[in-house]
């Protein structure tokens, strides 16, 4: 085999350890360089995360409005009856669904209007686990046949009943 006669000093740069060491060094330097390049700018500013992300979350799109005030500025016809009844503590969107787009675009984005027995029953039907100290409950199966709730009750103030029924 080659060189077998001379086990004199091999040039340092020809030694296996040196060659492989150089490869490792190059890989390490490349890695550290890439690492610096790819880490996002705001990473680590306030903790081990990209702090710009906090701002991004605050910009998430809204679906629900801030509360009922905006609704009641336009819908003044509902305002008085709503604020005088037991549904006064509800937000409009609890029953009408998310409506943040409605004020700016009242024709295209319409909140839902539901008055079915099932819809009202989702809160008012008697149910195991539902505390009767918190909410008025009826049994949909026996209460007033198949009439729609809004036939008798003013939904914005359910204590007020149409047709003088009680």
């Amino acid at each position: 085999m080659k060189n077998s006669d001379s086990d004199q000093k091999v040039k340092l740069t020809d030694q296996p350890l040196f060659r492989i060491g150089m490869i490792i060094a190059i890989v390490l330097v490349l890695f550290i360089g890439l690492q610096q390049w790819f880490i996002p700018k705001s990473f680590g500013k306030t903790g081990h995360y990209r702090s710009d992300n906090i701002q991004e979350w605050t910009e998430h799109e809204l679906q629900y409005a801030a509360g009922s005030d905006a609704c009641l500025t336009c819908h003044s016809n509902v305002k008085n009856i709503f604020l005088s009844g037991s549904h006064e503590q509800l937000n409009c969107e609890t029953c009408h669904g998310p409506a943040v787009k409605h004020p700016n675009n009242p024709m295209d984005s319409k909140p839902s209007i539901e008055s079915s027995r099932e819809f009202c029953g989702s809160c008012h039907q008697t149910l195991t686990g539902r505390p009767d100290t918190v909410i008025t409950q009826i049994d949909l199966g026996t209460h007033m046949g198949f009439a729609n709730c809004s036939d008798c009750h003013q939904p914005h103030n359910p204590g007020f009943k149409f047709g003088g029924a009680d």
Partner: peptide, 15 residues
């Protein structure tokens, strides 16, 4: 081989 072609006993012992 990365060009490290030396196979002298000394180098092999080092290996």
């Amino acid at each position: 081989s990365l060009g490290a072609k030396d196979l002298s006993p000394g180098t092999l012992a080092m290996d």
